Amino acid sequence: MTGAAKAGFGVYLHWPFCRSKCPYCDFNSHVREAVDQERWRAALLAGLEHAAEKSGPREVTSVFFGGGTPSLMPPETVAAVIDKIDALWGLAPGTEITLEANPTSAEAESFAGFARAGVNRLSLGVQALNDEALKFLGRQHSAAEALGALELARAAFPRLSFDLIYARPGQSPAAWQAELAEALALGPEHISLYQLTIEEGTVFHGAWRRGELILPEEEAAAALFEATARQLEEAGLPAYEISNHARPGAECRHNLTYWRYGDYAGVGPGAHGRLTFDGAKRATREHRAPEAWLDLVERQGHGWRQAEAVTPEQRLAEMVMMGLRLTEGISRAALQRELGAGPEELLPAERLQQLAGEGYLEVDAAGLRATAAGRQRLDALLGYLLG
């Protein structure tokens, strides 16, 4: 299999609306009392047509409905989008079609409708398995609702993933280990585990600056990361990416397209894409504000605000930043495909040797990868390697 084929071709759809804004969230999500579903459906379909005109013939290997809260979309809109993608590009056999959802009772009622629309993988934003933590995180569901939603999702979809947030204020290693054991007892094939971080512009950022929110110290957070990786490995869900664990074969194919630096179309407010056309790999970006995006699509047929060629230097930086998140690392085939050379020719040889000697990197015939120690310190490693 070639590097290009291995990366696949994905389509990302961004639904920007939520019932409420979580205090830790810096995603492009907005609360609106009412949404004109017909206008939004027509605009998403128009955006797909424009992306297909630019990309040319492709075969889609994954579709991802992200947000925001895509489970607030009517199943009819999801079905129309999937049908349009199939008509424009064609869906490969077994195409992974993921939709992100919240576990509130109202949204869980739509699961069967999403499955009939063609969604075959649900990503459920559980975030925590106790009510006190869920309240702190600003979630609108209870732990009981989360467990009920997981049962409904398991019955409706052949594939299921859910998220948890850890390294919360005051969370002891023992408490997290117990919560994680409870999650593993649910038998997940894929689980995403994110350390709580403070993002600028969020409610938590203001509380942190005022000293009202204190996160674990760096050493304590690192110990939690290591213990989490061990616990998941022992349970048969090894890390295939820094924050993502899966049983072999259950990895998220769409996210692998990002991390393996494949092409993907991004449609919806603020959506990014990487598309190769007119002889260059291009970074596309759509207008961020929902109403402005909708108006732009209705006036000009698409919401693009940018479609700039990605320079070789930018492609190298992006490949390294994305690929070293993966346990498998960056293949030589991918580097050859994008840049026509191997890691030794593209990156400072002395820095590669130093990082390899210190046990943070491995360079061999397969390619370049960060060790477990390197992935734990990835920001510092990237700063040194690309600086």
Rank of each mutant, 00 (worst) to 15 (best):
M1A: 14
K6R: 11
G8A: 08
F9A: 03
F9V: 02
K21M: 08
N28W: 01
S29A: 15
L44I: 09
V60R: 01
S62I: 03
S62M: 05
K84I: 00
A92D: 05
A101N: 04
N120Y: 11
N120L: 08
V126E: 12
N130V: 05
E132T: 15
K135A: 14
A143H: 09
S161N: 04
A167W: 08
A174C: 00
L186H: 04
T202A: 07
A207P: 00
R209P: 06
E219R: 10
A220T: 13
E226D: 14
R230K: 12
Y240T: 01
S243K: 02
H245W: 14
H254K: 03
D263C: 03
A265V: 09
L275C: 05
R282Q: 09
R282P: 06
A283D: 13
T284I: 04
E286C: 15
H287A: 15
V297A: 12
G301Y: 03
H302P: 10
G303W: 10
V310L: 12
M321I: 13
M322G: 01
L324M: 06
L326R: 02
T327Y: 07
G329D: 09
A333D: 15
Q353I: 13
L361R: 04
E362Q: 15
V363K: 01
V363L: 14
A365S: 13
A366G: 07
L378C: 11
D379L: 08
